[in-house]
């Protein structure tokens, strides 16, 4: 009796599992889009932050529609991007971020500048964008640990574009500090990270000058690594930040 029951159970399971065969007959997307957003002035990738406040790549798939809903790919914080699950197709690709927009429209909605690239995505497709950042933020020397346990970092800010339409007033500069390498306006330790807010055009005199920011909130906890980055932004559009690269400093 028991044997029969077991036989039935085994059969039931076997039948049950066999019905799990996939019938989804369309191939999963597997094309790759990779590339970088590069500062035209320095030739280096343009630093940004992770997530919604950073650079993103805008894809308009025009192989089947003239008016597609955009698809966005977020950039990594070093300015490169890599997306491995795209369908093959013809795409009009541009980027959005803390740089002079690649696609510009005038007041009547007509496109006056269009530096987007039309690309057939198949296999691994590489697309690079050369952009003029709104601001260029650069380290001056290495960050130092002060005697009182704080960290000071020096940097300078210059304009990344000569187009006066994109030389808006600088609104604020931050020294972002975090305990892991993902650091930026979306991810930082607000107890220690200082900022300078500028009103009006008061920051313009600071352009090209060496500025030093020192962490606030007293001595930093010791025996660990800190990841530092400077971010600055202007009053243009969605006020994206321009960043330096990330520097690591070990507090003994």
């Amino acid at each position: 009796m028991k044997k029969i029951l077991y036989t039935i159970a085994v059969c039931a399971i076997a039948f049950g599992v066999s019905s799990c065969k996939k019938l989804d007959n369309y191939e999963e997307p597997q094309e790759t889009l990779t590339g970088s957003v590069i500062d035209a002035g320095t030739g280096k990738t343009l630093q940004t932050e992770n997530g919604g406040g950073g650079t993103r790549i805008k894809l308009l798939e025009i192989s089947w529609s003239d008016n597609p809903t955009p698809f966005y790919i977020a950039s990594m914080q070093d300015g490169t991007f890599n997306y491995t699950k795209l369908f093959a197709g013809k795409n009009k690709i541009s980027a959005e971020g803390a740089f002079v927009p690649l696609v510009q429209t005038n007041s009547s909605g007509a496109t006056v500048v269009d530096k987007s690239q039309t690309v057939d995505i198949k296999g691994t497709t590489t697309v690079n964008f050369s952009v003029d950042p709104l601001l260029r933020v650069e380290w001056v020397g290495e960050p130092v640990i002060n005697a009182d346990g704080t960290i000071s970092a020096s940097f300078k800010i210059t304009r990344g574009t000569s187009d006066a339409a994109f030389q808006n007033d600088i609104t604020d500069v931050h020294l972002f500090l975090n305990s892991n390498k993902f650091v930026g306006n979306n991810n930082y330790d607000n107890r220690y990270s200082p900022q300078i807010d500028f009103s009006g055009s008061s920051a313009n005199a600071q352009l090209g000058q060496t500025i030093t920011l020192t962490t606030k909130g007293g001595p930093l906890p010791t025996k660990r690594d800190y990841f530092l980055r400077i971010g600055a932004r202007t009053n243009y559009g969605l006020k994206y930040y321009n960043y330096t690269d990330v520097k690591t400093i070990s507090v003994p």
């Binding site: 007041s107 909605g109 243009y236 559009g237």
Partner: peptide, 12 residues
């Protein structure tokens, strides 16, 4: 306001 978005027909 400093944000601008116009559609293709020129509506801001």
């Amino acid at each position: 306001n400093t944000t601008t978005l116009s559609d293709g027909a020129g509506n801001r």
